Amino acid sequence: MELRQLEYFVAVADERNFTRAAERVHISQSGVSAQVRQLERELGAELFDRSARTVTLTVAGKAALEHARAALAAAGAVGQAVGEVTDLIRGRLTVGMVTGCTLTPLFDALAAFHETHPGVELSLLEDGSDRLTEGVRTGAVDLALIGTATDTPEGLDALTIISERLVVAVPGGHPLAERRQVALRDLTAHPIVCMPSGTGLRAVFDRACAAQGVQPSIALQASAPDAIADLAVRGLGVALLSESMAARHRDRLTARPLDGVDAPALLALVWQRAHNPAVRELLVHSRRAFTAFSGSRP
């Protein structure tokens, strides 16, 4: 008894016709008939009543059908299990990281994954959040760390790593440094230094401005938070950053909450819902690394 015989038997039982069954399994009708006849000889009983135009199962056929389906399912499970192990032995994993990211837990997760699965080739791609998200959707990127304005980008699964409010940061002596908090409309009188379109932080800011009818003056754009801070220190504009980004420059810049922007800027891992075993394993290491990171933050 061979698996292909069971496959043809199930196909005929489902289609109730040898011709349609042959089209389904992509061989000739005579090939299907011959294999089913061989199966019947091995079992010692006819599985189909062929006397009418529509093929029907005999009592023996009905008894055999459920077991044939189970055997095919078991064979498929074996192939899937071996395939998953193979993916983790000699697969390839492309990981995306938003430009300017300085979060080392992602690197810790990659190192732990590589130690456990050294046969998987790792590739790290740095790009803007919008392009990385699209790469995950198309399958060009397996897993990406992005900045986003929404908890879960459409069509993907996500794990939020950081959720923070936006702040403005200015050097000492700047008029906004004297305020306890800054409203969006207060920014219209000053040039702004911020991240480019396509980043999560910028998306939160743009949405808030559109909702309130504010048209800010974007003077300079930079992908790296440190570059934004350096430009603000030199008086080239008001820096728009997240709380933790600004905190790294508290010795040079004064940060003030941005009033009227309630939605947080998020940093998240995103991946396709139907992910491969390598992604699943990397997620295990990522959750562990970022959980330790969150626990160590003040």
Score class of each variant (00 low, 15 high):
Gln35His: 14
Ala64Asp: 00
Thr199Met: 13
Glu126Asn: 12
Gly83Pro: 02
Leu159Cys: 00
Ala45Thr: 13
Ala268Glu: 04
Ser242Ala: 09
Thr199Ile: 05
Gly147Val: 04
Ala11Trp: 06
Ala247Tyr: 03
Val167Trp: 06
His275Gln: 08
Pro264Asp: 12
Gly155Trp: 07
Gly100Gln: 10
Cys101Ser: 15
Ala81Met: 13
Gly139His: 11
Val120Gln: 05
Leu39Cys: 08
Val32Glu: 09
Asp142Tyr: 04
Cys194Pro: 00
Phe107His: 13
Leu122Gly: 07
Glu84Trp: 08
Tyr8Asn: 09
Ala158Trp: 09
Phe113His: 08
Ala224Gly: 00
Leu72Arg: 09
Ala278Ser: 15
Arg280Glu: 15
Ala45Leu: 05
Ala227Phe: 00
Val10Thr: 09
Asp230Asn: 10
Ala60Trp: 01
Ala268Leu: 08
Ala183Asn: 13
Ala109Phe: 08
Glu7Gln: 14
Asp14Lys: 15
Pro257Phe: 06
Ala232Leu: 06
Glu121Thr: 12
Pro105Cys: 04
Ala22Lys: 02
Val261Met: 00
Thr133Leu: 10
Ser123Trp: 00
Glu7Ser: 12
Gln215Asn: 09
Ala177Met: 05
Arg185Thr: 14
Leu122Gln: 11
Val214Arg: 07
Pro264Cys: 10
Tyr8Met: 15
Leu253Asn: 04
Arg234Phe: 03
His114Cys: 00
Arg273Ala: 14
Ala109Arg: 10
Arg288Pro: 01
Leu236Thr: 06
Thr56Met: 10
Ala224Trp: 07
Glu154Asp: 13
Arg256Asp: 07
Glu23Met: 09
Gln35Trp: 02
His174Ser: 05
